[in-house]
């Protein structure tokens, strides 16, 4: 109900960061519109059906995909199921406390869920095994493991990396009508590759991809999820401040400018995964 993450930044430090940003400088030496270096490794958790570890500056997020057969949701009998979960675990930062998921965990998971669903990342209708009865249920679990800001974008990349690298068993029908999982694996049906871009407002300035200290002193943030065609497929404003209409447009243009670069990284992941899958073993 109230924010649980409350961290005091000493006033001189807060002022230093904010006045630097006023001059167009940032604590980690970046330009206002500069995104940090991104690295994605896939196959980092061998028992998962798909997994990825994303490094965004010093921020690290690990995501895993597990798919299992089960029932569809009653209101969507002819669609597979996508479940996104995130947990801000104390391993990642001294500001996270153990305990049941709070609003920050829930918000993170729901932003990623909306972006993936609206794009859509997964062709859920292709994950139906027996209409109305049996479908693939795809669980995407995201765990930040080191906190240097902007978990939303990093989690989005990790979720997509895990989905793109996932392989699920091919299914066949036995003579008695039962569904059998074969040894042969197949990729998940991917429709789009959304990327998430977060912009922070600090004073009157907009900065791309805020780091941890910038998040502590920011007034507000806004995240855009963008499809391959550069359509917006999710938006989320957060934080105690507000945006003018012009600032929202500026932020959207900043997001649109960096999205192709992030998607190119995911495309490379997809190509590599497909190439290694095609190799005879």
């Amino acid at each position: 109900m109230s924010e649980r993450i409350y961290t005091v930044v000493p006033a001189p430090r807060r002022e230093a960061i904010r006045s630097m940003i006023k001059r167009g400088e940032r604590v980690d030496g970046r330009k206002p519109e500069e995104y940090r270096e991104v690295k994605i490794e896939v196959g980092v958790a061998g028992n998962a059906d798909g997994s990825a570890r994303v490094t965004l500056g010093h921020t690290k997020v690990i995501a895993g995909v597990k798919a299992s057969l089960g029932q569809p949701f009653p209101d969507a009998p002819n669609a597979g199921v996508q479940v996104v979960h995130a947990e801000l675990i104390p391993l990642a930062s001294p500001i996270f406390e153990p305990g049941p998921p709070d609003e920050n965990d829930v918000e993170l998971a729901r932003i990623i869920d909306r972006g993936l669903r609206s794009a859509p990342a997964l062709k859920l209708e292709e994950l139906v095994v027996v209409p109305g009865k049996q479908v693939w249920r795809v669980f995407i679990d995201m765990y930040p493991i080191d906190h240097d800001g902007n978990f939303i974008d990093a989690s989005g990349l990790a979720a997509m990396g895990a989905l793109l690298s996932a392989r699920i068993p091919k299914l066949s029908t036995a003579p008695d009508g039962t569904i059998v999982k074969s040894e042969e694996k197949t990729p998940l049906p991917i429709a789009d590759v959304p990327v998430f871009v977060t912009i922070a407002k600090i004073g009157d300035a907009l900065v791309m991809d805020p780091c941890y200290e910038e998040e502590l002193v920011m007034d507000a943030r806004i995240t855009f999820a963008l499809t391959k065609e550069n359509h917006v497929c999710a938006v989320q404003k957060g934080g105690r401040g507000s945006f003018t209409l012009d600032e929202i447009q500026l932020a959207l243009d900043m997001a649109l400018s960096v999205a192709p670069r992030l998607r190119a990284i995911l495309d490379t992941v997809q190509q590599k995964v497909n190439a290694s899958a095609a190799k005879p073993t």
Partner: peptide, 26 residues
Amino acid sequence: MMPRLGEVTLMQADGRFTREEIVQAL
């Protein structure tokens, strides 16, 4: 929004919107 100040305090979205649609929606 704060109506008098014209500032956006909540914005969320699902579905698909072009840049122009976002500007028009605001």
